[in-house]
Design a protein around this nucleic acid. Structure first.
Lengths: 143, 143
DNA sequence: TGTTACTTTGCAACGTTGTTGCATTAATAA
DNA sequence: TTATTAATGCAACAACGTTGCAAAGTAACA
């Protein structure tokens, strides 16, 4: 019986025109299993020794193909998260909201936040909106 | 007749307990005159040859004292903008909204945007909210 | 299944940026 | 003016982004 997530990984890679390699499978599987944004260091920590250039290029190609997107969280090291289904390769059309916990350093997507309207921005063309919320997450507050 | 902005620079530095030096005056004056967020490169471009370590430390101390804050704009190089008056040294209590033009690469503060409420975040402690809007600014659309 | 064409990988290498230590120089307070 | 304390600039190192290139791997097709 095969891991359904591994199957999904293969489908995603094929669909995006990327060859199925061991490293790509590992990285994409990691993103599927982790319900949060990951930095390059996070990926390295989870997968062990990976060539950093390969990791760099893998994330870059994933981003170009619309598999992942950069998740702003207000920290200085970039994080990446899986794109929702409707996210095309051409442009990331969706808007993002992310919560960053300054205690455990986790960053995860917030799904049900309504973004403000932009009356104040008439005359400007708005392509993309990111919302970054920083604080302490539920889990860290409890402990 | 003395430049009132230069006077203001002196006052700010004194008030924050920073010594008044030529470089700090230049940098702070630049921020006062530019109504937008500036990267380190922007500062270098405007002020000519500055020692990059000094620039790094100047911005760092300005940030620590609550004179400037990092402005998220979704690009990979950090930008800085003047803090509003009420911004204390201890913690940046205010919430920020910034617009980044992908054409001219300018980043500026948006003042009159109402940030969404955070019903979805019950259980989490929210300290800080950043809103990043990307698009094309009015000036660039006209041309 | 084997061959071919194309992609991906990993190493070398370089540039940029963040960061710290330290000696020199400059600003402030008395 | 002098003593004290802070700021500057250089050296140096680490981390990261990026590209070129040769070797290895993947996928399509005969």
């Amino acid at each position: 019986m095969k891991d359904p997530q591994l199957t999904q990984v293969g489908e995603i890679l094929h669909e995006k025109g990327l060859r199925k390699t061991a490293i790509r499978e590992q990285i994409l599987l990691l993103f599927l299993r982790q319900d949060r944004a990951l930095s390059k260091n996070d990926v390295e920590r989870h997968l062990g020794e990976i060539d950093r250039i390969t990791l760099y290029r893998t994330l870059k190609s994933f981003e170009e193909k619309g598999i992942i997107h950069q998740a702003l969280d207000g920290t200085d090291n970039p994080k990446y998260a899986l794109c929702p289904e409707e996210c095309g390769s051409e442009e990331h059309q969706h808007n993002h909201a992310h919560f960053h916990c300054r205690n455990c350093n986790d960053t995860f997507c917030i799904d049900d936040v309504t973004l403000p309207d932009f009356k104040a921005l008439e005359g400007h063309r708005v392509d993309h909106v990111d919302l970054v919320v920083q604080g302490v997450c539920e889990g860290c507050q409890a402990s």
